[in-house]
């Protein structure tokens, strides 16, 4: 068998939804399902809670940056499971925003601004690339997998 045939295929799903908060739970259900599957393959119980929390904050963030003059926008969500990572990427054509490289200070009694803290804390990597040369804005979040292998047949 060639190396290419031996290589395990990544699992990747893309979904395009209107840029509305109401769309979040539709995609969220998909993310939650994938997390449940990964938990069945060995990720801890809190894995899904943490990933869905980060996803929701990311989606909220994109919907709140409405592109001026763009009446109807979509968000493309790509969810990919590799052998060692869960990657969630959200692409849109809305206004760009600055994603601070630094972890924001934690104030437990703050009434806003905790979204970035949640995303940075619950995911291992967070990367934002503003649109350029015809490409959409892309917010990419990566969470390392401790145990799971997406195509292991022994997962329950």
């Amino acid at each position: 068998m060639s190396n290419a045939m031996k290589r395990k295929r990544n699992n990747r799903i893309s979904i395009l939804v209107p840029c509305k908060l109401a769309s979040r739970d539709i995609v969220g259900a998909l993310v939650r399902h994938i997390c449940t599957r990964l938990e069945e393959c060995g990720e801890p119980e809190e894995f899904g809670y943490q990933v869905i929390s980060a996803f929701n904050e990311a989606f909220n963030n994109l919907t709140s940056h409405g592109g001026e003059g763009i009446t109807e926008r979509d968000i493309l969500v790509i969810v990919e499971v590799t052998e060692g990572q869960l990657i969630i990427e959200l692409q849109d054509d809305g206004d760009t925003f600055n994603l601070s490289e630094e972890m924001p200070a934690l104030d437990p009694l703050s009434e806003s601004g905790m979204g970035l803290y949640i995303m940075r804390s619950f995911m291992n990597e967070l990367d934002y690339k503003p649109s350029s040369e015809g490409r959409a804005n892309a917010l990419r979040m990566t969470r390392d997998l401790k145990h799971a292998r997406p195509d292991e047949s022994q997962c329950s």
Binding site: S53, N56, N60
Partner: peptide, 8 residues
Amino acid sequence: LIDSSGVG
């Protein structure tokens, strides 16, 4: 489920 808006 709760998010940062709910926490706020």
